[in-house]
Design a protein around this nucleic acid. Structure first.
Length: 495
RNA sequence: GCCGCCAUAGCUCAGUUGGUUAGAGCACCAGAUUGUGGAUCUGGGGGUCCCCCGUUCGAGCCGGGGUGGCGGUACCA
């Protein structure tokens, strides 16, 4: 007990969730599924630490104006800045550069773990969350990008997301840059406005084309009255950008937007478009249709290190919360090509492409739609041996040991309460069976075994307590020597 | 960061124009039942009414400031 004035409030920081047994079991199943797909594609495991040197992550040092902006950082005892990783790609680039000569290229690896972002948390947004990442380093070919997209699609389906309920969207940073060049936004002096344009296009799904039009032009005022400054583009430029992003890539099987006419054949944007078409040809040849993988010119992705194709895995089905409001899951995975990231550590560039699944967010989405892979209804607790005669702890402990030796998860009740409370305890633990041996049974060399699930079923048709007690439903008496054998029989019958 | 809404028991909430000792349902614990999880009945534990300052004879309620939560928006390398 503590003094009320000094008592510490038991609470965790926001955006950082505890995970109980059922959630761990469910995410464990998800992780095993993802791992099996990645390994099927020939990727090998790698683990890197949660902490990296800040400069290796590509972040400037935290400064006084904006301490820890976006990333959790602190100083080592030698004054060097350290940070918690905010994704699994930057640490991979560091690892590859550090072990470059020892790794066979292309280097294909996967890693899973918690990443950290110091941002405002919300529904489906956490400050610590789990990512499952796969990358091919050292392959410039579009085949590497296409493979990543196909693997992402396979993974979604193996996780129980039905075809049509998800889509892998593809776009290209080069194409986006080309479009902006076409409206006069090239050059170093327009870098800031290009960023505003990208951010605006990224909000198409949420704000619609009218909202984005405002953001590309004078600016937009939101429902709370807050004003967001726009890019200040002229109407013709806005029209060009929107017709590219909103128009969609296809019409009657042909590109709906004359990208090459806009960009010119030699432009870097045209090169990006060629790459997208290569990827598309490859996935179509492999049998992946528009319903699974398709080009979507509105995809942007926030990370600045992408240099070419970018990917986004999105759930397309709709769900409503308990108040009937539609819930938007957003993307549950993303990735792309980052040809410059390894090169930050080396004299020459190394091409690389990869994809990350946001496991925490995907778990929340699957949970909400009741997907079987995250259902935990059949979780079964241990057999509980009741503690009735306090001076016979050793006898009860021996029964538990025998059960455990036979591979039956089991435990001795270790609390101080009476029999009724012990039954409640077993019930709450979701125990399949309890083992009962009081002095009566001991004298006869017997034990009682009660099936709690069958007992609960029987209870439904029993109205009075006298009846309930007299019947002792689903409870049998057996010789003490047959305990292990009979318990195993009863458990086997349940499956 | 900016804007709005909200804050009473573990949870969901009620609480009169400012007036005794702040309530309900659910959950929890115990008894009815020497030794049986459900149901029923009875009883019990649990509250700095978010915090501080002010107004008042008197504040859960009114005023000011703060903190926290939720939503929108911005940011998300």
């Amino acid at each position: 007990m503590s003094d009320a004035k000094q008592r510490v409030e038991a609470r965790g920081p926001r955006g950082l969730a505890d995970r109980d047994a059922s959630e761990l079991a469910a995410t464990g199943k998800m992780l095993e599924t993802i791992r099996s797909v990645y390994e099927l594609y020939g990727f090998e495991a790698l683990e890197t630490p949660a902490i990296e040197y800040t400069d290796a992550l590509g972040k400037f040092l935290p400064d006084q104006d904006r301490p820890n902006e976006g990333v959790f950082s602190f100083q080592d005892d030698d004054d060097q800045w350290l940070s918690l990783r905010y994704d699994l790609t930057a640490p991979l680039a560091r690892y590859v550069a550090q072990n470059f000569d020892a790794l066979s290229k292309p280097y294909r690896s996967y890693r899973v773990g918690a990443v950290y972002r110091n941002e405002k948390p919300g529904p489906g947004r956490f400050r610590q969350f789990m990512q499952f990442d796969a990358d091919t380093v050292g392959a410039a070919s579009s085949a590497a990008d296409a493979e990543i997209c196909m693997m992402a699609a396979d993974t979604m389906e193996r996780l129980g997301v039905k075809r049509g309920d998800y889509v892998i969207k593809i776009n290209s940073r080069k194409v986006l840059d080309g479009v902006m060049k076409a409206v006069g936004l090239d050059g170093e002096e327009n870098a800031g406005r290009r960023l505003i344009v990208l951010r605006a296009v990224d909000k198409l799904d949420r704000l619609g084309s009218e909202g984005v039009k405002l953001l590309l032009g004078p600016g937009r005022k939101d429902e709370s009255g807050d004003f967001t400054k726009g890019a200040g583009l002229d109407p013709a430029a806005i029209d060009t950008i929107l017709s590219f992003s909103v128009g969609g890539p296809y019409k009657d099987g042909k590109p709906a937007f004359d990208l090459f006419g806009l960009l010119g054949k030699s432009d870097i944007g045209a090169q990006g478009a060629e790459e997208l078409m290569e990827i598309e040809d490859l996935v179509r040849d492999a049998g992946y249709g528009f319903d699974r993988i398709r080009i979507d010119p509105s995809v942007v992705r926030g990370l600045e290190y992408y240099t070419g194709p970018v990917f986004e895995a999105e759930l397309t089905f709709e769900t409503r919360d308990e108040k009937g409001h539609p819930i938007r899951f957003g993307s549950v995975g993303g990735g792309g090509r980052y040809d410059g990231l390894v090169g930050r550590f080396r004299a020459e560039n190394t091409p690389a492409t990869g994809f990350s699944i946001g496991v925490s967010r995907l778990y929340a989405a699957l949970k909400l739609v009741g997907s079987p892979i995250v259902s935990t209804s059949e979780r079964v607790g241990p057999v509980v041996v009741l503690l009735l005669d306090r001076d016979r702890v050793a006898d009860y402990q021996r029964m538990v040991s025998q059960l455990r030796a036979a591979g039956v998860p089991s435990e001795l009740y270790l609390g101080g309460s009476g029999m009724k409370a012990q039954m409640k305890y077993a019930d709450k633990r979701n125990s399949p069976l309890v083992v009962i041996q009081g002095s009566d049974e001991k004298a006869k060399g017997e034990v009682q075994v009660k099936d709690l699930v069958a007992g609960a079923r029987a209870a439904a048709s029993i109205a009075t307590n006298q009846e309930w007690k007299a019947q002792r439903p689903a409870q049998i008496s057996i010789p003490e020597t047959e305990l292990v054998e009979r318990v195993r029989e009863m458990l086997a019958r349940r499956d």
